[in-house]
Amino acid sequence: METIQDLIYYYSQNGAYVWHEFYRHFLMSAYGVLFAAIVAIPTGIVIARYNRLSTWVISLANIIQTIPALAMLAVLMLVMGLGTNTVVFSLFLYSLLPIIKNTYTGICNVDHALLESGKAMGMTKFQVLWMVELPLAMSVIMAGLRTALVITIGIATIGTFIGAGGLGDIILRGTNVTDGTAIILAGAIPTALMAVLADLVMGWLERKLSPIKKRKGSLKNNIQEQAA
């Protein structure tokens, strides 16, 4: 009980600070994913075209994924120094695999018959990509972004070790004091909340962008009315 009271007290005293770190944390994750998307989506499209490249690129992204987060930060820190940019860069690296993989899968899974009919109707290669492949792969690509965002929100907490700030700061402070449970929770709860929220929002977007659209109820009703 006491812990919860402590927690509430912490929030009431440091509300602005927690919000500031929350925002900072989110931005780091979002930038990481955004930059990764800019690189990984085109890469995914390219390797879907040239299948021979796909094994190489995906293996490389796999290797990046296996490096422990702390080790990655330490190594990057040696090159890039302390600070936010290093964290964003490592988040970028971690986001590559899910986005590349999903883009690749999404594009490869577009029905071959659709590509053929697109081509046969006189679409240029770019039109096939833009009007057929991307819209149909969009929900799978979004699922990749969703995974990436949730992963990066988790990893960004470690950023505190190289002075990047974020909610990790609060957690670390909690571990350094005696009886810091409330402070650890004060950092951990918003992190978890952010991950869950991000997952929900991205999940909603994913469904929104799904190629098979359910018609709106109102439209259906209209047609039924006309029929009646």
Binding site: D111, A113, S117, G118, A120, L136, P211, I212, K213
Partner: peptide, 11 residues
């Protein structure tokens, strides 16, 4: 051009 698999764009 008409194909067996129909190939209408679902989106």
């Amino acid at each position: 051009y008409v194909i067996q698999q129909i190939g209408l764009f679902p989106h």
